[in-house]
Nucleic acid binder design. Structure first.
Lengths: 169, 169
DNA sequence: CTCCCTGCAAAGAATTTGCATCTTC
DNA sequence: GAAGATGCAAATTCTTTGCAGGGAG
């Protein structure tokens, strides 16, 4: 009733989620859904509807892309997957129960990406969600900045060519 | 609405950004672009290409939606707007130089979006960036969860009768 | 005068919906 | 047996592209 199932498995085992599935009001546990669920459990990383359909195709029991599309929202509501936010125009998802969750620190100059974990931030996020009456189920955090190397390189350039640049593309 | 005279780059004044615009390699400052820029300066909150076109229409100097679409990426590269990430399939933008920066709390059930500010999180982000030698220039944070209403509604529905709920889009 | 910009129409890509048929409970 | 689920095709929605005329530098 309230949040979720007491069981919060960290593995990708299908059996852990059959239950959830049937808890979605009025839905039936069809073979298509088992297949989809199975594919999700085996999928590492983010995926789009089509990626999932493709991986299902490889499993040998093809499910229509339309059916995948129809089930993704259901699975999201069931807490099986979560929609992740990639600045793009496609719906990306990922398993909702991945054990580790790291965030990204991205250098806007050279594109370097550093992964990090910072429990304290997670705690505050819970706090914010709570303040607004939300039950937090996930988050997406990206920090943009300039890495050490690029800061140095930049400083050198400015010494050579002072004041000439306001900002560039 | 506000004719405040604070000449800070944090305000929505067009003049602050003309320069930037012309710095995009090879672009010209046409009247269409001025109009678009102007509309962006007056736009509070996030907008999609069409919202902007609509607001421009209201300004009286309509610009084709196609042109808006063609200019948004340019403006993003110029640092005038930034693409915000709302878990949806449309491209949302917001002015990049808004003084206040709020983050989003998104209900995965009904799609409701709540904006919030939480300075403490910002501080921690600075800390994380610092630990990795980064100079923080921006961030993007979205919290996904279930809002109070949906938590209640969900509980009720599961108890009584499953019915379709309003989802946006 | 040369490119770049714009608008229109049309193309694309991602996702949703109508409908007849097949399944699960 | 009935409420759901599925697949196909068609419809939508958002965004991009081709092309010819118009404008900025």
């Amino acid at each position: 009733m309230d949040s979720g199932k007491a069981k919060k498995p960290e593995s990708g085992k299908l059996s852990d989620f059959d239950g959830n599935f049937s808890e979605i009001s009025g839905t039936r546990l069809t073979s298509c859904r088992r297949t989809i669920l199975n594919a999700i459990c085996n999928y590492e990383g983010h995926f789009r509807a089509e990626d999932l359909a493709e991986s299902i195709r490889r499993l040998g029991r093809p499910v229509s892309l339309v059916t995948v599309y129809r089930n993704l929202p259901l699975l999201e509501r069931a807490g099986v997957i979560r929609r992740t936010c990639v600045t793009d125009n496609v719906a990306w998802y990922e398993r909702a129960w991945k054990a580790e969750h790291h965030d990204h620190l991205i250098c806007t100059k050279c594109g370097k990406v550093v992964e990090f974990e910072y429990p304290a931030i997670d705690v505050l996020q819970e706090a914010v969600a709570g303040e607004h009456g939300f039950l937090l189920t996930g988050h997406h955090l990206e920090l943009m900045g300039v890495c050490g190397q690029c800061q140095n390189r930049n400083a050198e350039e400015e010494r050579i060519e002072p004041e000439k640049e306001g900002r560039r593309k």
